[in-house]
Simulated scan of single mutants.
Amino acid sequence: MTTLADRWNIQPDHIWLRGRQPEHVVQEGEDGIVNVYGYPEASAVLTDPEAFSNDVDRLMEGDQALTGKEDRDGSLLGVDPPEHTRMRKLVGHAFTPSMITRLAPRIAELTRNLLDEAGGSDRLDLVESLTYPLPVIVICEILGVPTDDLSLFREWVDRMARSASGLFDGDEDVDIAAAQRRVPEMLDYLAELVADRRKSPRADLIGDLIHADVDGERVTDRQIVTFLKDLIVVGHATTSAVLGNAVLCLDAHPEVAARVRADRSLVPGVFEETLRYLAPGAMAARATTRDVEIGGLAVGPDRLVMNWLGACNRDPRQFDRPHEFDPARDPNPHLAFSRGIHFCLGAPLARIEGRIVLNELLDRYRELRVDPGEPPVFLPLPFVIGVTDLVVRTA
Rank of each mutant, 00 (worst) to 15 (best):
A212W: 01
A212Q: 01
A212N: 11
D213Q: 14
V214W: 12
V214L: 06
V214Y: 14
D215V: 05
D215G: 12
G216M: 09
G216H: 05
G216N: 05
G216Y: 08
E217P: 06
E217Y: 08
R218P: 04
R218N: 08
R218I: 02
R218Q: 14
V219T: 13
V219K: 01
V219D: 03
T220L: 06
T220D: 08
T220A: 03
D221L: 07
D221N: 03
D221P: 01
D221W: 01
D221I: 02
D221Q: 11
R222K: 09
Q223F: 02
Q223P: 06
I224R: 03
I224C: 14
I224G: 10
V225H: 08
V225D: 04
V225K: 14
V225S: 04
T226M: 04
T226D: 01
T226N: 12
F227N: 10
F227A: 09
F227W: 10
L228K: 11
L228T: 05
L228E: 03
L228G: 07
K229C: 04
K229L: 14
K229T: 14
K229H: 15
D230W: 11
L231R: 07
L231T: 15
L231A: 10
I232V: 15
I232M: 11
I232A: 01
V233R: 01
V233Q: 04
V233C: 07
V234M: 11
V234A: 15
V234W: 09
V234K: 12
V234T: 15
V234R: 10
G235W: 07
G235N: 02
H236K: 10
H236A: 00
H236W: 00
H236R: 08
A237V: 13
A237K: 13
T238Q: 02
T238N: 12
T238L: 12
T238P: 06
T238C: 05
T239I: 13
S240L: 02
S240M: 14
S240T: 12
S240D: 00
A241L: 12
A241E: 15
A241Y: 06
A241V: 08
V242P: 02
V242D: 01
V242Y: 08
V242R: 08
L243V: 00
G244S: 13
G244W: 13
N245V: 02
A246V: 10
A246K: 07
A246I: 09
V247G: 00
V247H: 04
V247R: 03
V247K: 07
V247A: 07
V247E: 12
V247L: 06
V247S: 03
L248K: 05
L248C: 10
L248M: 15
L248H: 04
L248Q: 00
L248W: 01
C249M: 06
C249L: 11
C249W: 03
C249A: 12
C249T: 12
L250T: 05
L250A: 07
L250H: 00
L250E: 00
D251M: 04
D251C: 03
D251K: 04
A252M: 02
A252P: 00
A252Q: 00
A252H: 06
H253T: 15
P254I: 06
P254D: 06
P254G: 03
P254S: 10
P254F: 02
P254A: 13
E255I: 07
E255S: 06
E255K: 13
V256N: 01
V256D: 03
A257V: 10
A257H: 09
A257W: 07
A258N: 03
A258D: 13
A258G: 00
